[in-house]
């Protein structure tokens, strides 16, 4: 069987066959061949560092391997693959941030905050969250807002954002983060301090 003549969906059907075996392994390998360089390229863009990107790509394919059986063909495989890759990338960044925050807190001795305030923030502060979104849209330059989102929400590093957006200025994404933060601080800084947060 020439696997190259099969569609992604046909390959997946073979790859997840219950009895596995050589055909399933070959189908998985064919899928890998189709997409691994695409994923590698995206991981490089997302991380901006090839070692990090290699780790990310590895985790992406690990996740694909684990979850291929849950792919139900409701979207294109490439779309599903992107969704997996993006989720893995963001989760990795989130985990790294939390490790870093934990390490910093160990050094600085974090101030205890009333846990109820945190729970309240998710429920009762929907308006505050909407205000953050409004400020991002209305107070910041579009490029500033885009950089802030990629850095703080998606967890990309500043050099990676500079590359992704092909920013020509000398300090790259950092300049936009500084500018954007300053504008948000003007609007939310005092409030955030009252919440026990940091800027």
């Amino acid at each position: 069987m020439d696997l190259d003549s099969l569609s992604d969906e046909q390959l997946i059907a073979r790859a997840v066959e219950a009895d596995g075996g050589d055909d399933a392994a070959a189908a998985r390998a064919a899928l890998f061949e189709r997409y691994h360089r695409k994923v590698a390229g995206w991981c490089l863009r997302f991380c901006g560092d090839r070692d990090e990107a290699a780790d990310l790509a590895q985790e992406v394919f690990l996740r694909v391997h684990e979850r291929l059986g849950s792919f139900r063909g409701e979207s294109r495989f490439s779309t599903w693959l992107y969704t997996v890759a993006r989720r893995v990338a963001i989760n990795r960044g989130e985990a790294a941030r939390r490790r870093q925050a934990d390490s910093l807190d160990d050094e600085a001795v974090a101030e205890p905050v009333d846990p109820a305030a945190d729970a309240e923030s998710a429920v009762g502060n929907a308006q505050v969250l909407a205000a953050f979104r409004d400020a991002m849209r209305d107070d910041l330059e579009p490029l500033e807002a885009k950089v802030l989102y990629l850095h703080y929400v998606d967890g990309m590093t500043l050099p990676a954002i500079t590359e992704l957006l092909a920013l020509p200025n000398r300090s790259g994404a950092k300049a936009y983060v500084v500018g954007g933060r300053r504008k948000l601080e003007r609007r939310f800084g005092a409030w955030l301090s009252r919440q026990g947060g940091a800027w």
């Binding site: 941030r97 925050a101 934990d102 807190d105 974090a110 101030e111 205890p112 905050v113 009333d114 846990p115 109820a116 945190d118 729970a119 923030s121 998710a122 505050v128 969250l129 909407a130 953050f132 979104r133 991002m136 802030l148 989102y149 703080y152 929400v153 933060r181 948000l184 939310f188 955030l192 919440q195 026990g196 947060g197 940091a198 800027w199």
Partner: peptide, 20 residues
């Protein structure tokens, strides 16, 4: 919630929640 110390919320936390 446990009696663990809750990490301080920073700008990044609020932005992430705003777009969660």
């Amino acid at each position: 919630m446990s009696d663990e110390t809750t990490p301080r919320r920073e700008l990044a936390d609020w932005l992430r929640d705003a777009y969660a």
